[in-house]
Design a protein around this nucleic acid. Structure first.
Length: 858
DNA sequence: ATACATACC
DNA sequence: TACTGGTATGTAT
């Protein structure tokens, strides 16, 4: 229509241009900066995609405007009442009694780097890479350089910009120190990211009233020559003491804020005494942070979280702002507050509101009736609270996570083989992460971004929760496969792939998993029908649960301990992981072309030996095939009989599943063996060994697919990002906080061999739930049921979603399968023909596969 | 339940 | 040369 400005691409500025709403961006030459950004971006695929997305937003706006035009007087009156009632109701419950504080470290990563490298202090610098910056210091911000900007553009804005790679471990360590201080003011504080948190100071302030002055006295850390013992703050003596960072000479702080300890007024002073007010307490906290870390923080004090957050930005950097807890003060504060400053209102909402003439929170209140008619209920409810300066007055405790994912960006990846390999690797990584938290989920989502930056997600929910890499991959690869087939004969030209697991099933006790499972095998081995017989009978002759008994006779005779078997799924995962780690180790070796295999991560401590030994062989294979971009070729590889290349053996390789010696040095043969072992543990032999073709069709899945990292040119970069962004992850709190590593990284304990602990807690090794019984019979019964389910499920997947092309049309609305039913249908092949033809029946919005694809790859 | 968009750091 | 990664949530179907 008449979006003359937007259509011409000028509206895109709201997406592309810098946000000067953050601190440190005052008085910039915006136009010049934007011109440079545009110049650097124009024509790129990224830019084109942004344009497209902007058009979508414009359409939303147009739709909204049309809606607005059709509003009747009657509707308005009705809405008016509704809004008024809502307002009075909300006012009635306004709570100004809490003292909420939001603390935010100033330019955190950049500040850490500057602290540790004085050279950087007087230079514009940023942390990140040429592809993406995490943050920038205030000097760089003067040039328009800021977080989330690609480094190469930042360089154009500021040619002298110094870009420092991220050092996540360091930031995390600093964060830990800071959080230790937070917890003294509010033990239940909520971290938002490594550098940011919400605290409820109410309690602290109550207690503080009666504190002696000594409790409110805090020392400078770099001026305590002799009386260190009198200090409240432990001083890290290894720290250089003259770093006192006047990081922000031009701090705009207008409120009475602690001056930097290097300033004239404070020279020679050894300590500070703080008062009992909220401001004093927060000042004190910031002082302690600075003394401890040599870094500054900013804070906001207000009666609720939203206001506190906005306030913390007000006097940043190295400042604080308190909004008095009165309605007048709040309303006054809100009045001129641009909506974009409010957490939760981003570019798009801002643009939509702007189209309605709404710029600040006052406007928001004025237009509430209209908004209530144009936006969803949740949206306008949020708006109305906002316009009244209301939000949560208590800080919610960190709840359980709802999903876990991993994704990776790389240089174009188009070959299905590589895509599957990558997918598999992602599943491995994800499974590993999930294991640390003992999670199992029912929904697997694959995310794909093509080289045009168009994003697609494909999800499938299954009956039984999945946790291991294999289980996840079994689903993910089908989702991926469906997409690949849908665009055939074209290739999926990907730039990013991700895998996510969600819909977690509750697991009551995740920690004692390792030990308990061993205990379980020792206890329950007898027979699932036998009650608490010999609780600690030596593990010579365990019986499998009924279900698995038929599986692996073959393996059993080779190795006595192979009966442990039932090889819990954890063990399978572990075995698989060993494979993968070996592969990783191998490819790493190639990366550096010299790094000895001992360069494998330390965390692998327990299986390091194994990986080390595997690595050389893998490496040689990899090198051979490096240019082919193919999985390890199945043809016999003349291997120099590198003695001791296998797992602990000198004449072959030891299978991590059955622990048998496989007398070969050919990795392919070995891999096949492992795969058979793994399959054997979960599926009927006849299902996967029936024919040659069947086997070969599963190669993708079962063989070592060694991702060719060298073709992922971005790999190194992205690894960096993976690190430094996980830190900002809001979930970081509990992610970090758990000590799962302690028990779960000890993979040795997963191997029945090395474990003789017995455990009296009964935890089902399948569903991971603590069983509320001491009765072994009942427990065994439960386990059998669980296994039944699990195995059935797996069989189901084998049948319905065979390796090759199954084509469960996930995207098909309702009708077709998205969730394999538990019955064994005939082979999925018939289905597969059916479903693609069904799209014609789709109604309304064509969002069936075809349409999507057309869009995706035009 | 699935897909896509928005938001946050 | 080059535009992140992890999570939550809202909206629409």
């Amino acid at each position: 229509m008449d979006k003359d400005t937007d259509a011409k691409g000028e509206g895109i500025i709201s997406r592309m241009a810098l946000n000067d709403n953050k601190a440190g961006m005052e008085g910039l030459d915006r136009d010049k900066i934007n011109a440079i950004i545009m110049e650097a971006s124009k024509g790129s695929r990224f830019y084109e995609n942004e344009l497209k997305r902007d058009q979508q937003v414009n359409q939303r706006i147009e739709k909204m405007m049309r809606q607005k035009a059709s509003i009747t007087e009657e509707q308005l009156q009705k809405a008016q009442l509704k809004v008024e009632n809502m307002v009075t109701e909300l006012e009635k419950h306004r709570d100004l009694s809490r003292v909420i504080v939001h603390v935010d470290m100033d330019a955190f990563y950049a500040a850490v780097e500057m602290r540790d490298c004085p050279e950087l202090k007087d230079k514009p610098m940023a942390v990140g890479s040429m592809s993406m910056l995490s943050t920038s210091n205030y000097q760089a911000r003067k040039y328009g350089v800021r977080a989330a900007m690609p480094g190469f553009i930042a360089k154009k804005l500021c040619p002298n910009l110094v870009i420092v790679p991220t050092n996540f471990d360091k930031y995390r360590a600093v964060s830990k120190e800071v959080r230790a201080i937070f917890s003294e003011y509010d033990p239940n504080f909520q971290p938002v990211s490594l550098d940011e948190a919400y605290l409820d100071f109410t309690e602290h302030l109550e207690q503080r009233k009666s504190w002696p002055e000594s409790a409110c006295t805090h020392y400078y850390s770099n001026r305590t020559n002799n009386n260190g013992e009198a200090q409240m703050e432990p001083v890290d003596t290894t720290e250089v003491t003259d770093l006192s960072p006047v990081l922000f000479e031009d701090s705009p702080s207008s409120s009475p804020v602690l001056t930097s300890c290097g300033s004239e007024a404070n020279v020679g002073k050894m300590f500070e005494v703080f008062g009992t007010s909220a401001e004093e307490a927060v000042r004190e906290m910031r002082f302690r942070i600075e003394q401890k870390t040599k870094l500054t923080a900013s804070a906001g004090i207000a009666p609720n979280m939203m206001l506190a957050k906005v306030c913390s930005d007000k006097n940043k950097p190295n400042g604080q702002y308190r909004l008095p807890p009165t309605r007048d003060a709040v309303m006054d504060f809100i009045h001129n507050l641009p909506v974009r400053k409010v957490p939760g209102i981003g570019k798009v909402s801002e643009k939509m509101l702007k189209a309605l003439g709404i710029y600040n929170c006052f406007d928001l209140g004025q237009q509430m009736v209209l908004l209530s008619l144009l936006f969803s209920e949740t949206a306008w409810h949020h708006f109305i609270e906002l316009s009244l300066g209301l939000s949560s007055t208590f800080i919610p405790r960190n709840e359980e996570r709802k999903s876990m994912s991993t994704e990776r960006t790389f240089k174009e990846l188009s070959h299905p083989e590589e895509q599957f390999a990558l997918c598999r690797e992602l599943c491995e990584d994800l499974a590993e992460d999930m294991k640390k938290e003992g999670l199992k989920g029912k929904t697997v989502t694959v995310k794909l971004k093509n080289v045009n930056f168009e994003v697609k997600t494909r999800a499938m929910t299954v009956q039984c929760a999945v946790a291991t890499a294999q289980e996840i991959y079994a689903i993910a690869k089908d989702l991926l496969n469906t997409e690949i087939e849908n665009v055939a004969p074209h290739l999926l030209r990907l730039r990013l792939m991700g895998v996510r697991v969600s819909t977690f099933v509750s697991i009551e006790d995740k920690r004692p998993l390792q030990k308990s499972i061993v205990g379980f095998f020792h206890q329950g081995k007898k027979d699932y029908s036998a009650p608490g017989g010999s609780l600690q009978e030596p593990s010579q002759k365990l019986e499998k649960p009924n279900f698995l008994r038929q599986n692996k006779e073959d393996v059993q005779e080779e190795h006595k301990t192979s009966d442990k078997p039932k090889l819990s799924f954890f063990q399978m995962a572990q075995a698989k992981r060993l494979q993968v780690e070996a592969a990783k180790a191998a490819s790493q070796n190639i990366d550096t072309m010299e790094k000895p295999c001992t360069s494998v991560n330390n965390e692998q401590s327990n299986n390091e030996i194994l990986t080390e030994k595997l690595a050389p062989q893998n490496a040689s294979l990899l090198i051979k095939d490096q240019n082919k971009r193919q999985k390890v070729s199945p043809s016999p590889q003349p291997q120099p009989s590198t003695s001791g290349c296998g797992i602990p053996s000198s004449e072959g390789l030891t299978c991590p599943v059955c622990f048998c010696q496989v007398k070969t040095t050919n990795l392919n043969i070995f891999n096949n063996h492992i795969d058979l072992c793994l399959k054997g543990a979960t599926t009927r032999p006849d299902q996967n060994t029936d024919s040659e073709s069947d086997l070969s069709s599963q190669n993708t899945d079962t063989q070592f697919f060694i991702p060719d990292k060298h073709n992922l040119e971005e790999n190194k970069k992205t690894e960096v990002f993976k690190q430094d962004f996980s830190k900002i992850n809001p979930q970081e709190g509990y992610k970090n906080g758990n000590s799962a590593l302690d028990s779960h990284d000890d993979i040795g304990s997963e191997q029945p061999k090395s474990c003789d602990d017995k455990c009296s807690i009964l935890i089902c090794p399948v569903c991971h739930k603590t069983q509320d019984t001491n009765d072994l019979t009942a427990f065994n019964h439960h386990v059998d049921l669980c296994l039944n389910q699990e195995v059935l499920h797996k069989l189901e997947q084998q049948t319905i979603m065979p390796e090759k092309p199954v084509l469960v049309t996930v995207t098909n609305n309702k009708g077709t399968v998205s969730n394999p039913p538990m019955r064994k249908t005939t082979k999925g092949k018939t289905k597969r023909r059916d479903s693609p033809s069904s799209p014609p029946s789709k109604k309304a919005k064509g969002h069936g596969p075809r349409n999507t694809i057309d869009q995706f790859f035009r």
